[in-house]
Design a binder for these strands. Structure first.
Lengths: 198, 198
DNA sequence: CTTTTAATTAACCAACTGGTCAACTTTGAC
DNA sequence: GTCAAAGTTGACCAGTTGGTTAATTAAAAG
């Protein structure tokens, strides 16, 4: 069925990287095209706008990340252990990113969400949706931990949102300070929120 | 000493509002000028770049906000009460902003910080500096609360950063979801972090 | 009233923005 | 080998970007 190409995939990878290492506003279509090695005409052959590419990039990044999350939050893993492992993975990933890009980058979804939520409703919606899905992982782990008597948490959704706010807040802190060490207290803060002794 | 003008002040107010209700990247010099009722030539008479105006705007906004914080975090107020009051003020302010702009806006410093910290080092530095100052308020209140036996917190700086990450995370959540109700759990989360019963 | 200093203005700039298009090339399927 | 579907290309667009300039105007200070 005609010519084939991986330009679409290259564009998707390029847009994620550029937004993550910079911002949505500072990322231009020309820049994305150059990074992907794709001419602008091809860009608009695959995507009808910059927003649409961003949407695709976000979706792709999330569906990749979900694979890891599904492993970490496997029901066979003790519930609190899921959360600690998730946080350890965050820290690990941020370390790798810093090595690769020379900077602490934080969470791309949350950072982008804060930036564009007042500006691009379509993006906002998608980002909110993904972040809501992410909160589900916490929620489920908290519910299990409560049911198994590890913690006292009758209102799992509320506690999950609190934990989520804290985690994202800390990642943003690490990005703004450009300092990984801010993530060191990740587990400590989570223990306080969940009410488990260190 | 020549002609006088309040154009500088108008520009400073305009840039804060535009960045807060939008983003740094989505705010253009032309837009700022139009909102302030100032011609571009005048803009560059007062500020040597967009970054420089943003810097001035941030500085101004912070020095205004500090006045309120100094009252809330007055040493004569019981330490934990300072924090609860601060959170109540946050929620109140966000409500007013939503009424005025039809949207939940969150914390301008933190939102802007997440956006520009990889893009504009000068802005990043300033934002980090201001946020560090803000953490000092928490830190001092926590230290006092510890000294007065209200909480057990030997490491005040660490706990302050945790509390700060949580608060900013929650404000960002409210902005992304465009939903004030996310702030309802503000005090609850803080109580968990600080280890005080409801 | 003059001088000096500061503010205003409009016209201007090159570079870049997101986006379009018609001609062209490649390739998979028959 | 043909042919149609799919991908590529570079030239092109109008509008906007951050920023400049020189001439003009207003007013504070002597």
């Amino acid at each position: 069925m005609g010519r084939t190409s991986d330009a679409k995939e290259r564009l998707i990878e390029a847009v994620i990287e550029l937004i993550w290492t910079g911002s949505y506003g500072s990322t231009s279509v020309d820049q994305i095209c150059e990074r992907a090695g794709v001419k602008k005409g091809s860009f608009y052959h695959f995507f009808e706008s910059k927003t649409e590419l961003a949407l695709a990039g976000i979706e792709h990044g999330w569906s990749e990340h979900r694979k890891k999350l599904d492993q970490v939050f496997s029901p066979v893993v003790p519930p609190l252990e899921r959360i600690w492992q998730c946080f350890r993975d965050f820290t690990l990933e941020q370390g790798e990113l810093r090595e690769k890009h020379g900077r602490v980058l934080g969470c791309p979804i949350h950072t982008l969400g804060a930036e564009v939520s007042t500006v691009d409703e379509k993006l906002r919606q998608k980002l909110q949706d993904i972040l809501s899905q992410f909160v589900c992982y916490y929620e489920s782990a908290i519910r299990d931990a409560h049911a198994q008597g590890f913690i006292q948490a009758p209102d799992a959704p509320a506690l999950a949102r609190i934990l989520f706010a804290y985690g994202e807040g800390l990642l943003a802190q690490a990005r703004i300070w450009n300092d990984l060490s801010h993530l060191n207290s990740m587990e400590l803060g989570a223990r306080l929120i969940l009410g488990v002794k260190s």
